[in-house]
Simulated scan of single mutants.
Amino acid sequence: MAFSARVSRDVIAQINVTPLVDVLLVLLIIFMITSPVVMHKTALDLPQPSSTPLTDPPRPIHLAIHQDGQMYWNDTPINLNQLSVQLSIAAAQARQPALQIDAADGVAYDVVARVLAQAKAQGVSHIDMLGE
């Protein structure tokens, strides 16, 4: 069986413009939809510059909790009752310092949970957990 293939050696010199027209129509529709959105003005309430100089934030409090449950407030040993007093003093300041809790790897979760609960109860607003 022989099949005949009609092979034309003529070069087609026409460009298919249908995909080009489709892309242009889609772009036209996109621009028609987005142009009204761009034309709307939005009122912004930007903060005004103040003449008062910015002060440095207070030095953060470093609370280290060792593996055996011993706590250190800025490298000074402290117990749970003293911690409550220190947290209330820190929370009463006009600009509260950040409380940075650095718990050791093997410390019991209960100890850290009690410290967090006391800090929240005393009103400390900024608590950071440090770790490696």
Score class of each variant (00 low, 15 high):
M1R: 12
A2K: 15
A2N: 13
F3H: 15
A5D: 10
S8L: 07
R9S: 11
D10R: 15
A13I: 10
I15T: 14
V17T: 14
V17Y: 15
T18D: 11
T18M: 14
P19I: 00
P19A: 05
V21Y: 15
V21C: 10
V23S: 11
L24W: 12
L25Q: 13
L25F: 12
L27Y: 13
M32V: 06
T34D: 09
V37N: 05
V38N: 01
K41L: 03
T42Q: 12
D45Q: 12
P47Q: 05
Q48G: 02
S50R: 12
T52W: 12
P53M: 09
P53L: 08
L54K: 08
T55V: 03
T55I: 08
D56M: 08
D56N: 01
P57A: 12
P58M: 04
P58N: 00
R59M: 14
I61N: 02
Q67N: 11
Q67F: 02
D68N: 12
G69K: 04
Q70W: 02
Q70L: 01
W73Y: 08
W73M: 02
N74G: 00
N74E: 06
D75P: 06
I78T: 05
I78C: 03
L80D: 07
L80N: 02
L80R: 13
Q82E: 14
S84P: 02
V85H: 12
Q86N: 08
Q86E: 10
L87A: 00
L87G: 05
S88K: 09
I89H: 15
A90S: 10
A91S: 11
A91P: 03
A92I: 00
A94M: 08
R95D: 07
P97N: 05
P97K: 06
P97Y: 05
L99N: 05
L99M: 06
Q100Y: 12
I101Q: 06
D102N: 15
A104T: 04
D105P: 05
G106P: 03
V107H: 01
V107S: 03
Y109V: 10
V112A: 03
V112G: 00
A113N: 11
V115T: 08
L116N: 10
A119P: 04
A121R: 15
Q122H: 07
Q122D: 06
H126E: 09
H126Y: 13
I127E: 01
M129D: 06
E132A: 08
